[in-house]
Amino acid sequence: MILPLLKGLILTIKRFFNPNAVVTQQYPEERPKLPSRFRGLPELQIGKDGRERCIACGLCAKVCPSKCITVEGATDKITQRRYPKVYELDAFRCIFCGFCEEACPVRAVILRDTFELSTYQNKNIFDKKQLLDLTKKRKISF
C-alpha cells in the first residue's frame, strides 16, 4: 500500500522541480498567449481612407443583449457619408458575446484580445476615439 503512495509522491516531486511544467503565468511581466478566437473588447476598425469603417447603421446597438453600445449617426457635410458621430461602448456592461461583430455588415467591430479593462472609476465607457486607438496601435487596416 505504501508503494503506490511513494510512486505518486515521486511524480509530485518531479513535477514540482521541473521548470517546464509550470502553468502559472507571471502576469503582467509575462503576457498571456490567447487562443485565436478569444473575445476581448469590441474594437472599431479603420478603413482604407484612415477613417472608421463604421457606417453608423446601429445594428450592433440593436443586437447587443446588454445594450451597451450607443451609436449616433450623422452626415459628413463634405462627402455626404454616413458616419458615427458618437460611438460609445460601456465596457462594464459588455458580456463579450460577439453579437455586435456578427451583426456588423461592414466588419467595423471586431472583438480582439483587449482584456485589461479594470479601472479606478466607477464607469468605463470607451468612446469612438479610444476604440479606434486600440486598432491604430495594432497598425492594421483594410
Binding site: 453608423a56 447603421c57 446601429g58 449616433e72 449617426g73
Partner: peptide, 9 residues
C-alpha cells in the same frame, strides 16, 4: 434627419 437615428430607435 441626417442619419441621426434609425426607425426602430
Amino acid at each position: 434627419l441626417e442619419f441621426r437615428g434609425r426607425p426602430w430607435e
